[in-house]
Simulated assay, not measured.
Amino acid sequence: MFDERWSAEAFEVATAVRSMLEGKCDESVVRAAEAAEDGLAPEVEKQLRSFGAYDLPNEPELLAAVSMELGRALAPVPWAEVAAVRAALGVEDAAYALDVAPPYGPGSAVVPTSSGLGLVANVGPRERTAAGDVLVRIDDAAPETRWGGDDARRLRALMRLLAAARVAGAASKLVEIGVAYAGERTAFGRPIGSYQAVSHKLADAAIAAEGAELLVRKTAWLAGREGAGSAPQPIFGIMVWNNAVEAGRQVSRLVHQCMGGFGATLEYPAQLYSRRIRSWALRLGRSGETYREVARILLDPAERDAVTGLWHEEQGLTIPRWARELDLTTNPRE
């Protein structure tokens, strides 16, 4: 049975990472990285390597727990992109670059080929994003295929889980910032958080953030049941990513509505979080494209029946009649 809490090991690792980041990856460090030419925080990277964050075993819960804590701290390091490649392909110092330009820093990048995945040098023109980090526009190359289509699907699903965890962590921290502000800011002699117009928005933001965290834990738990070296099922990778994107955007909108113009000022940390959430949300494809992937899985009997671990049934999906009829209309069988 699914336990909505982290496992004891994942909780211990997450607590240790949060403790390590306190004082070493605060607002001043994030701002300094944003002003740096490479958009990175070398001291944070050093601390993570000393901690062993780049040497964790390929256990989805552990990786997702660490990614969530790094998201809470807005850690200016490409850990998620590197950890996903290392866990899925066993390659060190290579960044994920299947759906977006890779982050600056790692020496190599894993890119899609016509039949799977290839490896190229992570060099090319740099481009700073709204999140303050730097991506590399890799020069056009035709790398040799080193991994097949199944490896690509596994890597993409794992990256979606870690990216969703990062967004969920940032959204959770942004809710805390909004709640603290609502408790300090007064209007008509009372904290603005005592007014329903504000408290209800913050409650909705908290529900969205907690829901995103819950689905991250659910997805990581399901992936862990598949055994060592596993990744989420493709449909769960899509679902957890899309949910995190929608939740992150909702949290950003609601918190900024409660804070008014003050939340958008450069001096306050809220905009650091909302900018990164918005930028991260564009990294792994538009929602419409990924929803089409879900539809293709649902309409393929073999893939549909392989789905396990849903809330309402253990295996397979029941497709409504109208969906089957629509599929036959648009894709007639011989």
Rank of each mutant, 00 (worst) to 15 (best):
E4R: 14
E9G: 07
F11V: 00
A14P: 03
T15I: 10
S19C: 12
L21V: 03
S28D: 12
V29I: 15
R31F: 01
R31G: 09
S50P: 03
F51Y: 02
Y54M: 06
E61K: 07
A65F: 04
V66N: 06
A75E: 00
A83I: 08
A84V: 09
A84Q: 11
R86K: 15
V91D: 14
A94W: 11
G107N: 08
A109D: 07
V111S: 06
T113N: 05
L117A: 12
L119D: 08
L119M: 13
R126Q: 11
G132F: 05
L135T: 04
R146H: 09
G149S: 13
R154Q: 11
L161D: 01
A165P: 05
R166S: 14
R166V: 10
A170P: 01
Y181N: 03
E184F: 09
A187G: 13
G189W: 04
I192L: 04
S194E: 11
I207E: 12
A231H: 00
Q233L: 14
I238N: 12
M239C: 10
H256G: 07
A264G: 13
Y273R: 04
Y273W: 11
S274H: 09
W280V: 06
T290C: 05
A302C: 05
R304P: 04
A306E: 05
G316M: 02
A323G: 01
T329N: 09
